[in-house]
């Protein structure tokens, strides 16, 4: 399927974020186009995760504007961001450890569930139909990510690589238009990384989801992303297609090291 890169879906303008005297982000602007894979790279402490937290409302920037799907906002809370179609995964896996894989992914669809607790208490008629309907969609995601055999396993018992995949599944369950991935390949071996790369590309191509990802593996970033933002000490030092960024002397100096 041919990928179509559309208009700007998310536009960040002059974002500044500080915690007390510590400046996490300083005057950062970049945009994300519909259907693209946008990578954010930078050394440790560059402000990459803070950037994602600003996008989905966990942190509130002191300055700057965020325009998502034509709607401008200064600050929002994570709940609103989720309702508008922004889903994410976390750097340190943030699954619900006591719940099964199936329940974790079902939880990802909570915003689409309309029946209140009184209906659920009865588990009758509309409530039961709703559960079954969502279960069907969740099973499609389970098939898509090839985790059929572990659907009834509590996630706490799964190995790390699979947990990362379940977290991706939970984010996908919300059918997001913008998916934020915070180091989806951290701590994985080569084979697991290849799998995860394939899933990210599949999500992007087959579901048409726009993806913003943070990743340290330069091989992966340069291979799969359309455009790359480079952060260093909370400032933007580079922005463009992978080839351009790779050859930018400023980026090489700050991130790849002078030796390259």
């Amino acid at each position: 399927m041919a990928r179509v890169i559309g208009d700007v879906i998310l536009d960040l303008q002059n974002i500044s974020l500080s915690f007390g005297g510590v400046k996490a982000l300083t005057n950062i602007s970049f945009d994300v186009r519909e259907g693209e894979i946008r990578a954010i790279i930078g050394p440790n402490g560059a402000g990459k995760s803070s950037m994602l937290n600003v996008i989905n409302g966990v942190y509130h920037p002191q300055q700057g504007r965020i325009v998502f799907r034509g709607q401008e906002r200064r600050r929002m809370n994570p709940h609103e961001a989720a309702a508008q179609g922004i889903a994410r995964t976390f750097q340190n896996i943030a699954l619900f450890k006591g719940m099964t894989v199936l329940d974790n992914i079902m939880t990802g669809r909570n915003l689409m569930m309309r029946r209140n607790f009184l209906w659920n208490a009865l588990y009758w008629g509309p409530s039961r139909r709703e559960e079954i309907a969502h279960r069907k969609r969740v099973e499609e995601i389970i098939d898509f990510l090839e985790i059929q055999n572990i659907r009834k396993t509590p996630v706490g018992r799964l190995p790390y690589g699979l947990q990362k995949r379940v977290e991706l599944a939970r984010a996908l369950a919300a059918e997001p238009s913008l998916l934020l991935l915070d180091e989806p390949m951290a701590g994985m071996n080569v084979e697991e990384k290849q799998d995860m790369c394939r899933f990210i590309l599949d999500v992007n191509e087959q579901l048409g989801t726009t993806i913003v990802l943070i990743e340290h593996d330069m091989g992966v970033v340069m291979d799969i992303s359309d455009r790359v933002v480079v952060l260093d000490y909370g400032r933007k030092i580079g922005d463009g297609p992978p080839d351009e960024v790779r050859n930018d002397p400023v980026v090489i100096e700050a991130y790849l090291g002078a030796g390259h």
Partner: peptide, 11 residues
């Protein structure tokens, strides 16, 4: 199990 993640997915 994890209230931050719960909030982020819209609970």
């Amino acid at each position: 199990d994890m209230d931050v993640a719960a909030e982020v997915i819209g609970i």
